[in-house]
């Protein structure tokens, strides 16, 4: 399963901005409802979150610490 941005349908006002900016075609309007299609092409650019005026669309990050020592020390 590919992870995708998530959408809170209650907050969405169906303005369609996210659909218009997504370059990978992951966000579509189906019967006037914004729908996210799973695709490997989503590179988490977060543009859809940036344009969403209502905060309905979110691209969340997991923050992890990589424990490997620095290579160039």
């Amino acid at each position: 399963m590919t992870e995708m941005p998530s959408i809170d349908k209650k907050k969405c006002n169906r303005c369609g901005l996210c659909v218009s900016v997504c370059g990978c075609g992951a966000i579509v309007m189906v019967n006037n409802v914004v729908t996210i299609i799973e695709t490997e092409d989503c590179h988490w650019c977060t543009t859809c979150e940036a344009v969403c005026p209502t905060g309905a669309l979110t691209c969340s990050f997991e923050i992890v610490i990589e424990e490997s020592p620095k290579t160039d020390s």
């Binding site: 977060t46 979150e49 940036a50 905060g55 979110t58 691209c59 969340s60 990050f61 997991e62 923050i63 992890v64 610490i65 990589e66 424990e67």
Partner: peptide, 20 residues
């Protein structure tokens, strides 16, 4: 924020958006 919310990649961690 990054340091406080960072996990070690093992267990489930809280996820954050840039907006948050």
């Amino acid at each position: 924020i990054l340091l406080t919310h960072a996990g070690d990649g093992g267990g489930p961690v809280q996820r954050l958006t840039q907006q948050e």
